[in-house]
Design a protein around this nucleic acid. Structure first.
Length: 201
DNA sequence: ATATGGATGGCCT
DNA sequence: GGCCATCCATATG
């Protein structure tokens, strides 16, 4: 090992480190705070990125949560890892959903990333989704669409975003959105009354 | 413009 | 065997 102790000024900063303060606090706080942040993926084919504009919070106490009651299974075990891990699951046999794990290890909680506004690698995303429309507003505006655009699947489940050189990174908003709206969550049958969905326009 | 129903597979009981 | 934190094509006003 002959790695230099100090970083060299000319060394290309291939990836930014995640700002850990983005994931501090309760799942609800994180879900709210992630609105406006940039999610980026350094894929083999190129970088893809988007600004998060819709999230949902899920915690152990919530009957709609995969980790409800703290029950660990094979599928949900990433939710019980430390905050900063990526939890991906398959839904309806054909789509994937991406979540950022929150809170401390042992507590099953996460924020579902429901939508991003594409900012980088748009051509790749269009390819990945076989997207026909001209307007990009429907390219990543849904949890399944987002994973399809970024080409994310179960193989990325459990990825630790806190690691240096993580393929997936989070960047804080340059200026936080002026208005974040909260509503009940989408597509669930339990915990429907909780206003745990956040979005901005 | 909104409403419907079919596709699909890993995981749980 | 039965869920499912979904999407899209198709059908109708």
């Amino acid at each position: 090992m002959k790695t230099a102790g100090k970083s060299q000024p000319h060394k290309a900063p291939v990836l930014c480190n995640m700002f850990s303060e983005l994931l501090e606090g309760t799942t609800l706080e994180v879900a709210r705070r992630l609105i406006g942040c940039t999610l980026s993926y350094n894929a083999p084919e190129g970088v893809m990125a988007g600004i998060i504009n819709e999230t949902e919070a899920y915690t152990e106490e919530d009957p709609a949560c995969h980790a409800y009651g703290g029950k660990q299974t094979r599928k949900n075990q990433t939710m019980f890892q430390e905050s900063g891990h990526l939890y991906i699951y398959l839904i309806y046999g054909m789509y994937h959903c991406a979540n950022l794990v929150t809170e401390e290890a042992g507590r099953g909680s996460a924020v579902l990333i429901r939508s991003v506004l594409p900012t980088e690698g748009v051509e790749l995303m269009i390819q990945n989704r076989n997207y026909k429309e001209k307007n990009l507003k429907n390219l990543c505006n849904g949890p399944g669409k987002l994973c399809q655009a970024f080409n994310w699947n179960l193989s990325l489940d459990g990825l630790d975003l806190r690691k240096k050189n993580s393929k997936i990174t989070l960047h804080p908003a340059s200026s936080p959105p002026t208005k974040v709206i909260e509503t009940p969550r989408i597509g669930i049958t339990k915990g429907v009354e909780l206003p745990w969905r956040f979005y901005s326009i």
